[in-house]
Design a protein around this nucleic acid. Sequence first.
DNA 1: CAGTAATACGAAAATTATTTTCATCCATGA
DNA 2: TCATGGATGAAAATAATTTTCGTATTACTG
Lengths: 280, 280
Amino acid sequence: MPGILSAIQEQIDTMNPKEKDIAGYVLAHPHHIIQMGITELAQQSGGSTATISRFCKLFHFAGFTEFKLKLAAELAQQTDTQSYQDIVAGNPLERIVSAMESNHVRSITDTTRMLDLKQLQKAIDALKSARQIDLYGVATSGLIAQDFYQKLIRIGKRAVTFSDPHMQVTSASNLTKQDVALGISYSGETSETIAALRCAAENGATTISLTKFGTNTLTSLADISLFTSTLEEGMRRGDMASRIAQLHVIDILFVGLISDQFDDLVPRLEQSFQMVKKYR
Amino acid sequence: MPGILSAIQEQIDTMNPKEKDIAGYVLAHPHHIIQMGITELAQQSGGSTATISRFCKLFHFAGFTEFKLKLAAELAQQTDTQSYQDIVAGNPLERIVSAMESNHVRSITDTTRMLDLKQLQKAIDALKSARQIDLYGVATSGLIAQDFYQKLIRIGKRAVTFSDPHMQVTSASNLTKQDVALGISYSGETSETIAALRCAAENGATTISLTKFGTNTLTSLADISLFTSTLEEGMRRGDMASRIAQLHVIDILFVGLISDQFDDLVPRLEQSFQMVKKYR
DNA sequence: CAGTAATACGAAAATTATTTTCATCCATGA
DNA sequence: TCATGGATGAAAATAATTTTCGTATTACTG
C-alpha cells in the first residue's frame, strides 16, 4: 500500500465522521478517485465538496487536485515496486537481507514521491539566510540532528544540537527572527522536541519540522513542514526505515543549501577533511 | 522514455508551430508540468491556454488535467536502477532530489549485492554471544556507531561507544576474549578507529570491521570483515550515500541479532508508534 | 497577382471545478 | 438549560479549463 493510502489509514481514527466516510471511500476505491472530480466524489462518499477540500489539506496538499495527482503517481508506482516486507521471527538471514533492502529502498523512493519541492525550497532558503540554526531531536532523531549538525559545521554554518532536552529549550529561548529551528521526530509527537520547537517559534525563529507524512503536533508548530513517507500500519520497523528516509531528506536539504556555492564549498569540505588529518 | 513523452516526440514533426513549442517545453521539463497550471504553462512555453488545451486533445486526453494526471503516473513509474549521479553546482532542486534518490538507492542495492552472508552470520553470532560490545568510529562513522549503540541498549545488550579517541582505546584495552569490537570507517584508514580496533584485537576480543569494499588497514585487523559498496571514484559525496549503506548493514546485523526473539523485542523498539496511539 | 479557402492562433466568454465563507446544527460540558 | 466550539454543507467567490469566435496568416487557384 502506498504512502498516501497508508497515511490515511493511520490517521483515520483521529478524523471527524465525514472525513472518515471520505477516507473510507478513498481507501476502498483509490483508482476510481483519480478519474473523478471533487463533486462526484462528494456524492459517492456522502460528504460535501467543502469537506473533501478540507480533507485533502489534512495531508498538507494544496487541494483536491494535488491530492489526486500525488495519488495517481503513487498508484502508478505500486504496480512495479515491491511492497514493504515485514520482518518476522526466525527468518533465515537471506530473507532478512532482502527484506531490509526492499524496505530501505521503498522508504527512500516513497519519501521522494512525497516531497513538496516548494516547501523544500523554502526550507533551504531559510537555512541559507539563517544567522543560527538549532536542531532538535531525541533518540534516533537526535542522531539525525547530529548528522546534519556535522554537515553544517563543516561548511561554516553556525549550528547547535543538544541531546539534553533542557538545553534544547534553553537554546531555543535565545533564538531570534533571523534564526531557524529544525525539529525532527518521526511521529511528530515527541514532547521534548515539541517543547523546543514551540519555544523557538515563540521567539520568532523560522521553524521547520521533519516528521512522517500527515498531521501532527510538530507540524502544526512549523512554518515549513517536511515529510518522510509513512510505513504501513502494523509494520514492524524499529525505527530503521524511517531513519533512512530522514537522512535522505537531510541530504537533499544539505545539497540544496550548498548547491549554488558548491564549487566554493567542496574544496572547503575537502580542506576540513585535510585539516583533521593534519592536526590529529 | 515513458509512453506519453515518446508519443509526443514521435508526433512532433507533424505539429503546428505553437504546438511544437509546447511539445518542446513538455519534453524538456516533464516533471515541471505536473506542478503547473495551464496558464503558467502557456506563459512558459510561449503558447496560449487554448492551444495547450487543443494540444492535449491531440493525444486523446479529455483535457489538460487528464494529460497532467497521466503524465504524473508515467513519470512515477521510472523505477530503473540508474547509475550514480554526481551532484554539481547550480542544479535545480528537482535534479538534486532525483540524484540523491538514485544515489541512495544504488548505495543500498549495491551494498546488498556485495554482502557475504557467511561473514554476516559470523558477525551476528559473535555479537549474540558477546559479553560486551565496543563500537568505534569518528565523525560520520561515529554516528553510525551511536545508532547501533542505541539499538543494542534498547534490547539490553551491554555496549559502549565513545567519540573521544582516548576513551575508545581505554575501553578497548579492557576487553577480553568474550567481547566483540566493531570498527566503522568508510575508508578503513581512520587512525583513531584503527588504533582502537588494534588494541581490542591484542586483548583477544573478536574484531569486526565495516568499511568500503576492498583491502584496507581496518579490514586487516578484523576477524570478520563487512563491506559497503564503493562509490565511483571522484564522486562528490560528503559522506552521504556511504552512511546510508553503513546503516543498511547495521540494520541487517541488528535484525539478524534479534530475529529469534523478534516478537518479544520489536514492541519495545517502536517508541514512536506507541506515542501516537497514546496522544490521540 | 488577386482572390479565396483553409488553418493557426489567442482573446475573451462560457463553462466547469475548486475553495472559502458563513450560517446552521449538534454535541459537550458548565 | 444554556453557552461554546467544532463539524458540516449551501452557496458565494474564486480559480482553472475549455470553447467560441474573430483575426491573421499561409496556401492554393485561376
